[in-house]
Design a binder for these strands. Structure first.
Lengths: 249, 249
DNA sequence: TTGAGTTGTTCCGCATTGCGGAACATAATT
DNA sequence: AATTATGTTCCGCAATGCGGAACAACTCAA
């Protein structure tokens, strides 16, 4: 990218979206000062941005005058989801698998070095982090992230690896080694696994869905106490592999 | 609002968000020309905006170079949802009600003259429009919309009525009359209904959740062939009323 | 294959829009 | 009451966003 291209970048838009993106899971209403700190912008700039976002309906103010995301933000995401044909096709089979196994079944897409869940069927007895449409998990240390990584072309894997190296810093060699192991295993078994690596008490296996655009992967996860890794590989993984094959485009 | 306040409005941000909001349910990838038409902006402006949104990760380009919303848009919505305590509390009871009745149970919030769904438990045998987090339905002609309207203070009802009048134009008197009937009925029964008004084959009843902020309402809907309106009022509505009371803040 | 039409991208001169420090108002705390 | 913290608005400034035009690339029909 040369300098001319930076002239096309609309900074005001980026800043406004940074304000929206400053909200994290569990946040309630935030004030302008907190938002200014999170975004690294001057208070007056943030004040103008929140004013604009309120007028547009993407933020609303509570009684104390603080801001929280308004439901209109959800409608942006809805449009994103409703364009995903594969998600619609996958929904019922995923629900079925979740019911049969008693595990959580999720569908995810890569976004940079993260996975964004686009569909979730959660087991009734939930353990672990919130599995929810729109929530994200790391790419490198989760089964679903690894599956998405495997589906990348080598050049893209290289690119992503660079981003990950930046992110993990000194810990990257270790993470990379495990990613390499996963690649070998994927080549032999057709699935990726994460046994307690991301969350100590959670096992998961995942498989990319061939031919999907944007590339997606399907994941099955549950509590570690239920099944040993060997049983996961024998009993659960084949079902996920089969489901991914059914969903292949 | 005086003219000075317009100086605080960041037009570039608004335009960028208009581009994101131009995507509708079912849209796949859109080109710059289509987006320019939908937003009423010049092509070159849209080109700069889509360039920026791509760089930020909110749009992605497919092989043909057209744009579609990227999963990062979902993460904005996730933050909006995760700040809603009531939604979390409501989830399990909603799922239970849906299971017991075989109907779809939804939780919604008002956004202008629309309702945005923030939680949905769909019946297995689905009929009617997509009930999905982030999807919207009209305020004035749906049970849940009416319930949300009832929960407004009189001054706010007035404001909303003005917006609705603008929107419905010549049809507003008729819609207003039905809204008035719903208000009377709500006063007597504690719930709002829509029997085939929004969708011919769908009945629904809804109740606002007292004390909720932002104001929410809970809705139960299903196919008209299942139960007569009288049975809806006798058998389903009381359960919804009860659930709303349990969820009251 | 050629020409016409369509779509997408970039340029560039322009001016207005977005900026941010400062002033001011309001709210909270000691 | 004084101090601190937060939120809002002003206003001079300049750089950023703008959009018509030029150009590039693609598609389609004859």
């Amino acid at each position: 990218m040369n300098e001319d291209q930076d002239r096309l970048f609309v900074t005001a838009l980026a800043r406004g979206l940074d304000v929206l993106a400053a909200y994290q899971a569990g946040d309630r209403a935030l004030g302008n000062t907190e938002l200014a700190q999170r975004c690294g912008l001057p208070k007056s700039t943030v004040s103008r941005l929140t004013y604009t976002l309120c007028k547009l309906g993407y933020l609303s103010q509570d009684e104390s005058g603080k801001y929280r995301p308004a439901p209109a933000v959800l409608t942006l995401g809805f449009a994103a989801l409703s364009g995903l044909d594969l998600r619609e096709r996958a929904r019922e089979p995923m629900r079925r698998l979740s019911k049969e196994t008693g595990l959580s079944v999720t569908l995810g897409v890569r976004q940079g070095t993260r996975v964004v869940y686009v569909e979730t069927c959660r087991a009734l007895t939930r353990v672990g982090i919130r599995l929810e449409v729109g929530s994200t998990v790391p790419l490198a240390t989760t089964a679903i992230g690894r599956a998405l990584y495997m589906a990348l072309a080598p050049a893209e894997q290289q690119e992503v690896a660079c981003l990950l190296a930046d992110e993990y810093g000194a810990r990257w060699p270790e993470v990379a080694a495990r990613l390499q192991v996963a690649q070998t295993t994927y080549g032999e078994t057709g699935f990726c696994a994460s046994y307690g690596e991301f969350e100590p008490d959670i096992h998961a296996v995942a498989v990319p869905i061939a031919g999907s655009a944007p590339a997606m992967a399907i994941n099955c996860s549950g509590p570690a106490y239920r099944l040993t890794p060997a049983r996961w590989a024998e009993e659960i993984a084949p079902q996920v592999v089969k489901l991914a094959a059914q969903l292949a485009v």
